[in-house]
Design a protein around this nucleic acid. Structure first.
Lengths: 345, 345
DNA sequence: CTGAAAGCGCTTACAG
DNA sequence: CTGAAAGCGCTTACAG
């Protein structure tokens, strides 16, 4: 910067005290031991020079960093801004600031984010972007934890208690949404899943299949895979669904509302009436789903709350507060709106 | 963290060299002067110990920080995630990482963000959140610049060349949008503006009035103020608009698409048909506006591009590249979609 | 009530 | 080709 920042020494010089004293005054520590006049002189000097403590120097002296890392896939899917909002607001309340990283679900970018965050010596990391759940990726997580930086996953997660995480019971939610579709009388359902099978997708799929098993094969179904970031295959998928010999009566877009809304949009453009020609259900609970026409039937997750609680949990881990539950499951609800209807009667 | 991080000294010890040599090897500097065997030993040791350089120590030695600050109002309005995406992607390309701050358009939070960012010694700051354009706030900006940290405003801006900024020509865009409404035959228009009159809002209002002046008072109009973060007054505003003695034929939501979409939503809920009963135009160009029914006629800004260019400009300022233009105006377009129609013939 | 000094983890002239 | 040493801006026992 060419420009030299004002240092504590500058302040001390102007106030005619030692840096030690200046430091004590400015940090409000050992108040008793500093005379009022001295304190005032230091404060004045700092004010006059617009002194700003160098956080990096403080960190070097072993102070804990007040920044935490946040790793998300991108801001394209409106799920993430809302999640981020919950995280940053809570971080703010707790006195942390955020270092933000986008990975685009690319493992090498995720690796880079972890690297940078470790070099920064952040106090903790929240991850909403698990690229592919590979062994290699899991090792990344363990490395970070081993280095002493606590990690919390939100939305996506690893199976079991491996990494603390906050989410909803995705399998159960998916089961309930599917049950609803079955009760509505659907006889052939297309399920849309994310091509990269995160544990999350595995669970949603299992929830779906749980419900299907209960229906005793009265309902036919087929899985379609899409790439949620590039939207590749989406048009092809829609075509296949529409042109199936035995007609699909419903589309369960288990990979999320963002794609569900896109599907509704494309369907409408193609002159297909929803829910009359075909029903569409989503998963997420984006506010977008309420605004769109027809409004979207979906699993409503407390997205903001997921972020908020993830940050709360991370903070507890940072300050080593004892934690009874490392896996937090928040409540959700099934919202039946205009994009689905009962086919019976 | 209790846990001690691996230091350069640990690496040097294991490799049986001095920290100086270890540093040279790990930074790839003075390659010629290091023997291949020594280099390898250092690299091995670093690998074995999972050594991670402490960025904060580096900063202390006068190295430039690779983080830049980003200050936005919130993620609620979808304008900001898209803007953020442009900024972070460009920052990534240029090797910077992001410290994210939400202000909720609260000046004290903005002040806190600036403070923290200065203490962090970031290399630069992008601001998309100008709370109230007061003298006090402007002073904040000047303080940061004076401390040697370059600032770039994006979307919102101060009048004149005071702070480098990237945006579109908002006055002109607003003028054109209004012109379109006039050509469509509107005789009474409600303009919705943000209660906090940023320069941006002032310009949009002026653009609107420019067009009105040209229409030679054939068109009546009225301004309504809303608080875009809390949505307060929105219902009241809509009521007033709907119950006006001489009917409004159009609503020009100059404060943005996010509110425009909300208005459309509320109108539809109330059984009002758009554009048949009343037309609605927005300003921003959110993709949301295309998905909604009726799709929104609006000023389409290159939102992602604004962010991308803001980061590009900031980077130039950071590396002190000579810059011909400190005020960048990107192209926009007027999209006429379903929420407006011609009233003539 | 106050200050001298060590040390946090690095980088970088400088000397050899 | 390599190392000893100073110093970046702080904090904090320790001594007075």
């Amino acid at each position: 910067m060419g420009k030299r920042y004002v240092t504590l020494n500058d302040v001390a010089l102007l106030a005619n005290v030692s840096v030690a004293t200046a430091s004590y005054v400015l940090n409000g520590r050992k108040k008793s031991r500093i005379s009022a006049e001295t304190a005032e002189r230091v404060l004045d000097a700092a004010e006059k020079l617009s002194y700003r403590p160098n956080v990096n120097a403080r960190l070097l002296k072993g102070k804990a960093s007040s920044t935490i890392g946040l790793i998300i896939p991108s801001m394209q899917n409106y799920f993430y801004p809302e999640l981020t909002e919950g995280i940053t607001n809570r971080a703010n309340e707790l006195g942390y600031n955020i270092a933000l990283f986008n990975t685009n679900d690319d493992l090498s970018k995720e690796k880079h984010a972890f690297d940078t965050l470790q070099n920064l010596r952040v106090s903790g990391i929240i991850v909403a972007s698990i690229a592919n759940s590979s062994e290699e990726e899991l090792k990344l997580f363990h490395n970070v934890e081993e280095s002493g930086i606590p990690v919390v996953c939100v939305d996506r997660y690893y199976q079991g208690q491996e990494i603390p995480n906050v989410s909803i019971d995705q399998r159960r939610a998916s089961y309930e949404m599917t049950k609803q579709l079955i009760q509505d009388g659907h006889k052939k359902i297309a399920v849309i899943l994310h091509r990269d099978m995160h544990q999350q997708m595995v669970d949603r799929r299992m929830g779906f299949e749980d419900a299907m098993k209960e229906s005793k094969e009265e309902v036919a179904w087929e899985i379609f895979w899409v790439d949620t970031t590039t939207f590749t295959e989406l048009d092809a998928t829609i075509d296949t669904v529409l042109n199936a010999e035995k007609a699909f009566t419903g589309i369960y877009c288990a990979c999320g509302d963002f794609i569900a809304v896109e599907i509704i949009h494309k369907l409408k453009r193609g002159g297909i009436r929803i829910p009359d020609d075909i029903c569409v259900a989503g998963f997420d609970g984006l506010s977008l789903g309420e605004i769109v026409s027809p409004s979207l039937s979906t699993v409503v997750q407390p997205i903001y709350g997921l972020g908020y609680e993830a940050m709360t949990l991370l903070q507890k881990r940072i300050v080593k507060e004892s934690i009874s539950q490392l896996t937090i499951r928040l409540p959700y609800s099934i919202a039946i709106r205009e994009s689905t209807k009962t086919l019976i009667g």
